[in-house]
């Protein structure tokens, strides 16, 4: 790897990280480095100062926040998320999405915070966090603030986290037994960036017949991870039937502007959104019915 020259600053506390980011002009936070370093290697990214926060011990954790939420430190690796018993119990869609990220080596290094802040529209975790209505806690020179997921992702590779701030932790809700979920990534080869990624949460009525609430997060189809709001609205309160799920899948492409690449044209991605929203809904509904005792 032959990047352009850069300065490297390893910090060990959040305060030190913020101080360095404030001092330097062209600073960039380095967490697991699994997206940033490949870009630097290709010289497509060349930050002046890398502020390595991976040595901050208190940013890697997964802990309960009361009964209804889980807080995940931003330096928690994908592998840790994938194997967290607490998340598996309270918010199993997140470990499921983390398990499909790239390969074991990358999951050992890549972090949930790094992936969120890099905001690659094709990453697996951001649409999942969007569907979860997660909350992002950001610290900066003026203190800390919490941003809801729907505001966090601003544009291509751009989030609410400013140049002199760092993402501290992410809070996700506990999903009750009436919830079903699915995370489907469609790609040509195991572990690759998805051609489309679909994170789905459904909440059913007590009979398992009606959709009380549906949230659909999509990856790789817009400049940012996004929600299929039209489909969500359409499904709310509907009785579950194959025709309804198919119609929702059709509506899930509303407002999408997927880019094209050699693995999938814009049209193909739109087609695949429909396929995987429908399949994802079926899977999520099945799971919710099983969990709710209505198989």
């Amino acid at each position: 790897m032959y990047p352009r020259p850069f300065e490297y600053r390893a910090v060990t506390t959040v305060d030190e990280a913020l101080r360095v980011l404030h001092e330097v002009e062209d600073g960039k936070v380095l967490a697991g480095g699994q997206s940033l370093l490949p870009l630097m290697k290709l010289r497509l990214a060349s930050p002046g100062v890398l502020v390595d926060i991976s040595g901050i011990p208190d940013l890697s954790y997964i802990r309960p926040q009361g009964e209804n939420a889980v807080e995940i430190g931003s330096l928690t690796t994908h592998d840790t998320v994938a194997h967290s018993a607490l998340l598996q119990e309270r918010c199993p869609i997140l470990p499921a999405a983390a398990r499909g990220i790239a390969d074991q080596q990358i999951r050992n290094r890549g972090t949930i915070g790094g992936s969120s802040c890099h905001a690659d529209p094709a990453s697996d975790l951001p649409p999942t966090l969007l569907a979860l209505d997660a909350e992002f806690s950001i610290v900066g020179p003026k203190g800390s603030r919490t941003v809801p997921a729907k505001e966090f992702f601003v544009d291509l590779f751009e989030t609410q986290v400013q140049r002199d701030e760092i993402l501290h932790h992410i809070q996700v809700p506990t999903l009750g037994p009436q919830w079903g979920w699915s995370y489907t990534k469609f790609n040509r080869r195991e572990g690759d960036y998805p051609i489309v990624g679909v994170a789905i949460l459904v909440r059913l009525d007590s009979h398992g017949r009606r959709l009380e609430e549906v949230r659909i997060g999509l990856a790789a189809v817009n400049p940012t991870p996004c929600r299929a709001r039209a489909a969500e609205r359409f499904l709310q309160g509907q009785e579950i039937s194959p025709a309804i799920l198919k119609e929702a899948a059709h509506r899930s492409t509303e407002g999408l502007h997927p880019g094209s690449d050699m693995h999938g044209s814009s049209q193909y991605r739109r087609d695949m959104v429909q396929v995987f929203v429908r399949r994802g809904l079926e899977e999520a509904v099945t799971r919710a019915r099983l969990a709710g005792g209505n198989p």
Binding site: L42, L44, P121, N222, S266
Partner: peptide
Amino acid sequence: GALAGIAQRLLDQAADR
């Protein structure tokens, strides 16, 4: 060159922006 190949999947959106 490099951008066209490596950033292919993001090119439309990045150029648009």
